[in-house]
Amino acid sequence: MTTTAPAAAAPGRVRPLRRAPALAAGLVVGLVLLAVLAVVSVGVGARQVAPLDAWHALTAFDPTSFDHAAVRSRVPRTAVALVVGAALGLAGTLMQGLTRNPLGDPGILGINAGASAAVVLGIFVARVSDPRGYVWFAFVGAAAAAVVVHLVASAGREGATPVKLALAGACVAAALTSLVTAVLVTRTDALDTFRFWQVGSVGGRDLSQVAELAPFLVVGAVLALASGRMLDAAALGEDVARGLGQHVGRARAIVGVAVVLLCGAATALAGPIAFVGLVVPHVGRAITGPDHRWLLPYSALLGAALLVVSDVLGRVVAAPGQLEVGLVTAVVGAPVFVALVRRRRLAEL
């Protein structure tokens, strides 16, 4: 990226004018495709419903039809997948942009582990058994882990390099996991609640949970979508960004708050889901180029699409049962991670 960035920046002055309509049209087409995906998603499962019938179930609900009831029952999980996917896609782009790190992902950087550990504490110490109670713990845990990983990784002369961040994330995750296990081996009831959350799933939630987390997600998304310019400046390096009149510290704080809100809410809702935040920005960059003002909305769209598709895949592959979406995204996303790592030089963004 460092070598290609100057070449891309030169025509960048002209290109937005030419490409803006195309990218905007792409967003609209993407939204339509996402809606189609969502309709397919409510139709797929143990009881298959054709997309057209599924559409009827949503628009003209017939209480006597089993098909329509099945479709209605799949609405919450599809909504959760859309919301969580968009949040994780945005969060991944923010993390990768801010740290200029192609390996940024809430799973790799230990933020999920922080949320997990805090949720276990919530279940264990505060005896929270209602997922609604998890959310505050998830926020605090995600924020604490993010700060610790960043502090540890930025020690040393060369600052937080991608490798150091990934290693710090892995180590923090390993440390937190062993603390979590220490609690869980002594408490079977905590394990029984925790294991179904830990796997990362969009099933079994209802719309009221989405509604409760919506404020956090909306604030996080607004902050994220508004931070495109800051990330573009950050991509030029701290000194240049400062020279361009950016408040680097303030930009970091805003993006950090957005990441914690998005990751924390997504993790509270669906459990720790890895690799969505990793894969989405790379696909998005292939479409939009490095301009974060376009990359961010595309990331939200792609993240939502990826999670809905993964959820559908999990239902199709293991039919009539299901694979939880956390497992599917790990299996889908890991090859991308390995491919990134195998690049000749792990360049910074």
């Binding site: 390996l103 799973g107 790799i108 490798v163 990934a166 290693l167 994330g169 892995a170 890895a274 690799f275 790990a330 890991a334 991670f337 390995v338 790592v341 195998r342 792990l346």
Partner: peptide
């Protein structure tokens, strides 16, 4: 790093 990814 590959190990970290595989571990995830």
């Amino acid at each position: 790093l590959v190990g970290v990814g595989v571990a995830a």
